[in-house]
Design a binder for these strands. Structure first.
Lengths: 110, 110
DNA sequence: AAAGTACTTTCCATACTGGAAAGTGGTTGT
DNA sequence: ACAACCACTTTCCAGTATGGAAAGTACTTT
């Protein structure tokens, strides 16, 4: 019934949402997509890893080191629960946060 | 595109969501519904008032003083925008935060 | 050897949150 | 009249967390 404090902070919510939509995402891609600094992504990524919500994979692309993040099952479950809680909190207002089949607006009750 | 920091903190999100669903709500009702202390509700309420998101009305019920909160138009607009942003952030995952006609589950894509 | 890439850590200064406790203004009980 | 109570409001007090800047690590490229 509570909003998971590991996920709720804006930056982490965005990271988790992004990862929930992809298999795996590159450090640089996430950083640029969210528009955060290296240090912020590194720190928030670690926080999510410590919570067991994401898995960090290090590897190479050619000879350059790269880091990838991916949601763990636990992280996905936590995100799903988080979104469910958000829904319970927000939905009485009649507003929806629901995308239509192919992404659509937020509006008053349908 | 950003999650309004005035609304985002859990307690305030819950206050605003509750007010968005009602015309007006009594201090005690909100406090008990959210399960927060007097001081927390008082402080967060003031924060929302300062932001111009809610209006605080003081009156009496018999001879006892009572306080009511109601969302201002500005507050409602901010909440709507907030929810829209939430949707943009969360929806790529395929999860929805949308209630069905009469409140329903969160699930995978429909 | 110097510079660059891809992060990670440390440092720092600033919020912000919530609980406890004290305070305010008016009311009810004895 | 005086103590106790109601309905909040404020103050006091930690304890956290956040983000940017800068320094550090480990390589690789020029």
């Amino acid at each position: 019934m509570e909003l998971d404090p590991v996920i709720h902070p804006p930056t982490r919510l965005q990271i988790v949402s992004l990862l929930a939509a992809a298999e795996e995402a590159e450090f640089g891609f996430v950083r640029d997509t969210l528009g955060v600094s290296d240090s912020v992504l590194s720190k928030q990524g670690s926080a999510l890893e410590t919570a067991g919500y994401i898995q960090v994979r290090k590897g190479y692309v050619g000879k350059r080191p790269k880091t990838w993040f991916r949601l763990t099952d636990r992280g996905r479950a936590a995100f799903t629960a988080y979104v469910a809680n958000l829904q319970r909190i927000v939905s009485p207002s009649g507003l929806t946060v629901a995308p239509e089949e192919r992404g659509q607006a937020v509006g008053r009750p349908r």
